[in-house]
C-alpha cells in the first residue's frame, strides 16, 4: 500500500528525514482506511436498495445503534457476551502462551504436536458444537468452551513457532555476555518471541470472539449472538443490523489496537 519509495542501498534507511516520512505514511494509511470505509458503505447502501427485507440502510442503522447503546436490554446482552468473551480470551491467551512455550521448548513434543494442531485449526469447529453443548450444558460454560476452542490454537501455534525459531546466535550472545538463565529468559528470549506472540494473540482475539458469538446463536437466551439470531427469528431487521454494526466496530477497533502494538514491537 505504501507509495513512499524505498531508499535502499544507503547504509541508513531511517535518519533525519524519517519523521516526515512516517507522518506521510500514517496520513496515507488514514486515507486508505477512509476510502475503504466509503466503498463498504456504498456497497451496503446498494445491498439495502436491492433487498430491504434483509438489512437496513447505513444511516438508519447508525440511528438504531445509538438507540441501542441507550437501552438496558442491549447492555444486559452485551454484558453476557462480554463476560463469556473475557473468560474465553483469558483462557485462550494464558493457556495458549503456556502450552506454546512448553511445546516450543521441548523439540520432540513440538514436532509431534505441530501437525495435530494444524489439523485442529482446520476443522470447522461448529460441527463439534453439539458435543460441546452436551458436555457443558446450556449455560455460559459452553460458550466459553467454544470460544476457547477457537482462540487457543492460533495462540499455541504462533507461540510455539516463535520459540522454535529463535535465532540460536542470540542464545550464544547471552552466553558470551555471561547472562544467567533467568536474565537470558527475561532480557533475550522474551523480547525475541514477543512480536510473534502478540500476532498470535491478535488472531486468537478475533477467533475467540467468533467462537463466543457463534456459541450464543444456538441454544442460548443471552448475549449479542442471541440478539442477532433472535432479530432474524422475529424479523427485527433494524436491531439485527445494528448489533452487527456494533460488533464490527468493536472488532475493528480492538483489532487495530493490537495491530498497532504488534507493529511497535516489530522494529
Amino acid at each position: 500500500m505504501s507509495v513512499i519509495p524505498e531508499t535502499s542501498g544507503s547504509a541508513y534507511v531511517g535518519g533525519h528525514d524519517s519523521a516526515p516520512a512516517t507522518q506521510r505514511q500514517s496520513l496515507q494509511r488514514l486515507l486508505d482506511s477512509f476510502l475503504l470505509i466509503v466503498v463498504l458503505v456504498v456497497i451496503w447502501q446498494l445491498v439495502y436498495w436491492k433487498s430491504e427485507v434483509a438489512i437496513t440502510g447505513p444511516i438508519e442503522t447508525v440511528k438504531t445503534a445509538i438507540e441501542l447503546l441507550g437501552s438496558e436490554t442491549f447492555w444486559r446482552h452485551a454484558l453476557a457476551s462480554g463476560r463469556a468473551f473475557g473468560l474465553s480470551l483469558l483462557m485462550s491467551s494464558i493457556g495458549g502462551v503456556a502450552v506454546g512455550l512448553a511445546l516450543g521448548a521441548h523439540r520432540f513434543s513440538g514436532a509431534v504436536a505441530a501437525p495435530i494442531l494444524t489439523a485442529l485449526y482446520t476443522i470447522p469447529k461448529v460441527t463439534l458444537y453439539p458435543l460441546v453443548l452436551l458436555i457443558f450444558g446450556l449455560g455460559i460454560s459452553a460458550k466459553v468452551a467454544f470460544g476457547v476452542m477457537h482462540g487457543i490454537i492460533p495462540v499455541v501455534i504462533f507461540t510455539m513457532d516463535a520459540v522454535r525459531n529463535i535465532n540460536p546466535v542470540l542464545i550464544k550472545t547471552a552466553r558470551v555476555l555471561k547472562l544467567s538463565p533467568s536474565e537470558t529468559a527475561y532480557r533475550i528470549l522474551i523480547p525475541a518471541v514477543m512480536p510473534e506472540i502478540v500476532t498470535g494473540l491478535r488472531v486468537g482475539f478475533s477467533l475467540t470472539l467468533l467462537g463466543v458469538i457463534i456459541g450464543e446463536m444456538f441454544a442460548s437466551q443471552q448475549g449479542l449472538g442471541f440478539m442477532i439470531i433472535n432479530g432474524m427469528n422475529v424479523h427485527n431487521v433494524r436491531s439485527l443490523t445494528a448489533v452487527v454494526l456494533l460488533l464490527v466496530f468493536f472488532a475493528v477497533v480492538s483489532g487495530s489496537v493490537l495491530l498497532a502494538l504488534e507493529r511497535r514491537l516489530q522494529r
Partner: peptide, 30 residues
C-alpha cells in the same frame, strides 16, 4: 566463557528490539 574473551559471530547478533546505543551498552549494564 571466561572474562576477557569477546566473540563476534558470523550471523547478525544485534538485538532488534534495542537501539544501537542500548545494544552496545547491553553487556555493561549487568
Amino acid at each position: 566463557v571466561p572474562d576477557g574473551i569477546g566473540v563476534v559471530f558470523q550471523e547478525d547478533a544485534s538485538l532488534p528490539w534495542l537501539t544501537v546505543w542500548d545494544n552496545i551498552s547491553f553487556g555493561l549494564r549487568r
